[in-house]
Amino acid sequence: MTEPRPPARFAIGNSSDIVTARQAARALSAHLGFGKAHQTRLATAVSELTRNVIQYAGEGSCLIEDLSDDQERVIRISIEDHGPGIPNLPLAMEDGFSTSGGLGAGLPGARRLVDDFHVSSAPGLTRVVIAIRKPA
């Protein structure tokens, strides 16, 4: 198999960083042989989550890792910030819930777009870890 790509970390601080991060996620998924549908889902999820970082925390980071092995192609992406945290996580995961007049589609939508989705949040650290996988 091809050598795994080294992890890439992106600072997220303005709206062009969102574009950079989602394009990097798409490029890696294309490189690992994920189909167009998966590439689009992953890029869209990254777009939502990095935008939340900018909107609610001001800045943060996005780490893109290739965790593929002989059996499986895996991309894991960790998006985190040191902002105020999400006060009511179950509520924030509901479709349509927004404190900013948004569509409230970001978190619940991103969850549906990927294979793994974990979120933890407290004041000072919010981390969302997503992954997509497919057999090698």
């Binding site: 549908a37 569509l103 589609a105 939508g109 549906r112």
Partner: peptide, 15 residues
């Protein structure tokens, strides 16, 4: 694009 349409529907109907 078809993949964009599919993704939008998965994200939430009527987006």
């Amino acid at each position: 694009q078809p993949f964009v349409a599919m993704t939008l529907i998965e994200m939430g109907r009527d987006l």
